[in-house]
Amino acid sequence: MRESGKEFSFNEDTEAMVQSTIAKYPKGWEASAVMPLLDLAQRQNHGWLSKEAIDYVSQRLNMPPIRVYEVATFYTMYNLEPIGKHHVEVCTNLPCWLRGSDDIVAACEKALNITMGETTEDKTFTLSHAECLGACVNAPMMQIDDEYYEDLDTASTISIIDALKAGKTPKNGSQSARFSCEPATGLTSLKHQEALLKSEGNGGSL
């Protein structure tokens, strides 16, 4: 854990969210809000948690600091070191790896000119591994900040990163032609019901 040397407290916008988060839990159980509060602190603090931020959360929730350190060090989504403006996390677990995540990692490293775990010199990108993010059906995938980018290949990965570099917002979700996680080859089952449902005025949704 690192000290930033700067004091931390929630700004007005965050504070409103903090209040409503704490209000979700019964009185006396405010400590339950520790994870969302750490997340809010991280967002406010440019994507990472300084010691000051963690200590501040522990004070806010009346928890011994060590209890919050335990949480903050357990979850990989909390960054304990400063990171770049965009956090590129490539899933390298089994399903993604089988579907070619090695290529995606290589594409990222090439496009950003850094290796896994590093931050670009201009502090815009940090590249890291992610454990399974639950989007295996669209493997391989990566997460950048709050968005998922799925069905990646080398070209689409590079174009996403280039778009971000240019300050644009790339399309999220599946980068292939398919919608969401529908079968890549089009619908394969329950086809006969489509007509049936339509005729019943159901809009065809299954």
């Binding site: 011994p64 060590i66 209890r67 350190y69 335990e70 060090t73 357990f74 979850y75």
Partner: peptide, 14 residues
């Protein structure tokens, strides 16, 4: 934490 009442120790990392 429980007996001595000094919650200073913990298990960090995973």
């Amino acid at each position: 934490t429980e007996i001595a009442g000094v919650p200073e120790l913990g298990a960090t990392g995973r």
